Simulated assay, not measured.
Amino acid sequence: MPWVVLVVSGLLEGVWATALGRSDGLTRLVPSIVFGVAVAASMAGLGYAMRDLPVGTAYAVWVGIGAVTTVGWAMLTGAEPVSVVRVLLIVGLIGCVIGLKLTE
């Protein structure tokens, strides 16, 4: 169960990072509310997962999932460019996250 919560929390990190970017410095109401809810849920989930998982592994996986989610969404929506190098680096990051899980 801690791994499931950690993955969901990582996905929520991508949500809050994207919402923060769209909030225009927390001046736009809806993205600011999405940011606040997502960051609270993401941190709560990370904290829950860290009760059973090593702190370094849990944090690295959480950040990796959040980073992949954020940049993947930005590329899918056209907010950031897509290139072979960027996609390969994201695939490498996913591989590292999976590797951390497998070496637990």
Score class of each variant (00 low, 15 high):
residue 73 W to P: 02
residue 89 L to W: 06
residue 31 P to L: 05
residue 86 R to D: 02
residue 8 V to H: 02
residue 89 L to C: 12
residue 101 K to V: 04
residue 90 I to D: 07
residue 64 G to K: 04
residue 69 T to F: 00
residue 67 A to R: 03
residue 66 G to L: 03
residue 66 G to W: 03
residue 103 T to Y: 04
residue 104 E to K: 11
residue 51 R to I: 13
residue 42 S to R: 08
residue 2 P to M: 03
residue 75 M to E: 04
residue 100 L to G: 06
residue 28 R to N: 09
residue 90 I to Q: 12
residue 18 T to Q: 13
residue 58 A to G: 09
residue 64 G to N: 10
residue 23 S to N: 01
residue 97 V to L: 08
residue 79 A to W: 04
residue 96 C to N: 11
residue 38 A to Q: 12
residue 2 P to K: 07
residue 72 G to K: 01
residue 2 P to N: 12
residue 13 E to V: 08
residue 58 A to S: 14
residue 85 V to P: 05
residue 22 R to F: 01
residue 41 A to G: 09
residue 76 L to S: 07
residue 5 V to P: 01
residue 70 T to G: 06
residue 51 R to T: 15
residue 53 L to W: 06
residue 9 S to V: 01
residue 10 G to F: 00
residue 19 A to G: 12
residue 23 S to A: 00
residue 103 T to Q: 15
residue 33 I to S: 14
residue 99 G to R: 11
residue 60 A to F: 04
residue 33 I to H: 13
residue 37 V to N: 12
residue 10 G to C: 08
residue 74 A to E: 12
residue 72 G to V: 03
residue 57 T to V: 13
residue 55 V to S: 12
residue 58 A to P: 11
residue 45 G to W: 00
residue 59 Y to G: 11
residue 13 E to Y: 01
residue 94 I to D: 05
residue 76 L to H: 02
residue 68 V to E: 05
residue 86 R to T: 04
residue 56 G to Q: 13
residue 54 P to W: 10
residue 63 V to A: 11
residue 54 P to Y: 10
residue 6 L to M: 08
residue 85 V to A: 12
residue 90 I to M: 11
residue 62 W to H: 10
residue 52 D to E: 06
residue 49 A to E: 06
residue 101 K to D: 05
residue 68 V to M: 11
residue 99 G to Q: 13
residue 15 V to H: 13
residue 61 V to A: 15
residue 83 S to D: 09
residue 94 I to M: 09
residue 81 P to G: 14
residue 20 L to S: 12
residue 61 V to L: 07
residue 33 I to R: 13
residue 63 V to D: 15
residue 91 V to F: 02
residue 50 M to D: 04
residue 3 W to D: 14
residue 10 G to Q: 05
residue 17 A to F: 02
residue 43 M to L: 14
residue 24 D to H: 04
residue 71 V to T: 15
residue 6 L to C: 02
residue 94 I to S: 00
residue 53 L to F: 08
residue 60 A to P: 09
residue 72 G to R: 02
residue 24 D to P: 00
residue 22 R to P: 04
residue 44 A to Q: 05
residue 8 V to G: 04
residue 22 R to N: 10
residue 89 L to K: 10
residue 69 T to I: 03
residue 83 S to K: 01
residue 52 D to Q: 06
residue 21 G to V: 07
residue 88 L to I: 07
residue 7 V to E: 06
residue 82 V to M: 10
residue 11 L to N: 10
residue 81 P to W: 03
residue 4 V to D: 09
residue 68 V to L: 13
residue 54 P to G: 14
residue 11 L to E: 03
residue 65 I to P: 05
residue 18 T to L: 13
residue 3 W to P: 01
residue 65 I to R: 05
residue 17 A to H: 06
residue 84 V to N: 08
residue 65 I to K: 07
residue 71 V to D: 08
residue 66 G to Q: 09
residue 41 A to R: 10
residue 96 C to Q: 11
residue 70 T to N: 11
residue 18 T to G: 03
residue 101 K to Y: 01
residue 35 F to K: 13
residue 53 L to G: 00
residue 65 I to L: 10
residue 59 Y to C: 13
residue 85 V to I: 13
residue 31 P to F: 01
residue 104 E to A: 13
residue 86 R to H: 02
residue 20 L to H: 08
residue 79 A to L: 05
residue 3 W to R: 08
residue 74 A to V: 12
residue 58 A to I: 12
residue 10 G to W: 03
residue 104 E to L: 06
residue 99 G to Y: 09
residue 78 G to A: 04
residue 103 T to K: 14
residue 32 S to C: 00
residue 32 S to L: 00
residue 14 G to W: 05
residue 27 T to M: 00
residue 5 V to R: 01
residue 12 L to Q: 07
